[in-house]
Simulated assay, not measured.
Amino acid sequence: MDWAITAEGLVKRFGDRRVVDGVDLTVPAGSIYGVLGPNGAGKTTTLRMLLGIIEPDEGHRTLLGHAQPQDASDQIGYLPEERGLYPAMKAREAIAFMGALRGLDWRTGRARAGEMLEVAGLGHAADEKIRKLSKGMAQLVQLLGSVVHQPDLIVLDEPFSGLDPVNQERLERLILAERDRGATILFSTHIMAHAQRLCDRLAVIAGGKRRFEGTVEEARALLPQQVHYVPHHPGPDIARALPADARADGEGWRFTLPADGIEQTLKHLIDAGHGISGLSIERPGLHEAFVRIVGADAAEAAR
């Protein structure tokens, strides 16, 4: 497999604190890869070490085959967590300017900027000054500027933070379009819903350590499947026919899928006269898996 990024044993200390403590990552080329974790987990520091913005105290990394990330700088698009555009610039010019910083000629940058703004649903804002745009629109303009030179690797630090649902959807579409173009996308987030929809693979970082690496489905498989059962004729003694961990959920019940399957439980329910109005077997979502991996306290901090 071709790797866009490899990292082994990354360590970063600030004073006596190990903010990143031996993190390993392997990001397949052409994939969408998420780095998940609560605030303060070390996600941003890890991304900055990968990009060569700061140097690790220990460990090593390669970026697009380069041992020195700076050697690949023109092939990279980076959206930092701290946003910043020149407020007096128009949106189209701001995008072209960011492309020029990566070696893209001005005329091509302006032309691409106009096309990208149209596709993103922001064509009407092409000649608006940044100061007149909403926060979400300005953030999308900065993202477009980060990818206008068509980089091979796109690194986004908390890209969904502060966006309303409409602009979150626009951003998801843009990320998928860049992946379909052939780019590798690496993004950090503490919002599980985006990671579950977008990621081919992901890593979970907490307390500066990598706690998990794999696919979304592998993360969800860490927890047993759950049964959602709605009785047709619920009676006061229904709990007797249900597994011990069953809990009420609206008009129905939820419980862990028994190790020997659901058939025996359903037989008890039918024999007791409760019947079946609805039944589904579901794998827990990425949020539940995240709680299992990092612990309830850390997961609450990620909200």
Rank of each mutant, 00 (worst) to 15 (best):
P38I: 14
R283P: 04
A88S: 10
K267L: 14
E251Q: 08
A41E: 09
H66E: 15
L279M: 01
V35Y: 14
Q225Y: 07
A138T: 04
S161E: 15
V19K: 07
L25K: 04
Q139I: 00
R17T: 04
E55N: 06
A88F: 11
G275D: 02
I76M: 09
V155P: 03
Q150K: 13
L156D: 03
A96P: 07
I185M: 09
A100R: 13
L122E: 08
I54W: 11
H274K: 08
T46W: 13
I5E: 05
A111I: 06
R292H: 15
A125G: 00
G123N: 08
P28V: 10
G37Q: 11
S31F: 11
L36V: 10
D297P: 00
V155I: 12
L104M: 08
L174S: 06
G121P: 02
S161I: 06
A241H: 12
L176Y: 04
I191W: 00
A113W: 09
Q70K: 14
E55T: 13
G250P: 10
I293Y: 09
V147G: 11
E300V: 08
G109R: 01
D57H: 15
D157I: 06
D16L: 07
D237K: 04
G15E: 14
R18H: 04
V20M: 09
H268T: 14
A125L: 10
A244R: 14
Q264I: 00
A183R: 13
V291K: 12
V230Q: 04
L143D: 06
H274W: 11
M98D: 01
R220W: 03
D105P: 15
L133I: 02
E288V: 01
T184G: 01
C199E: 08
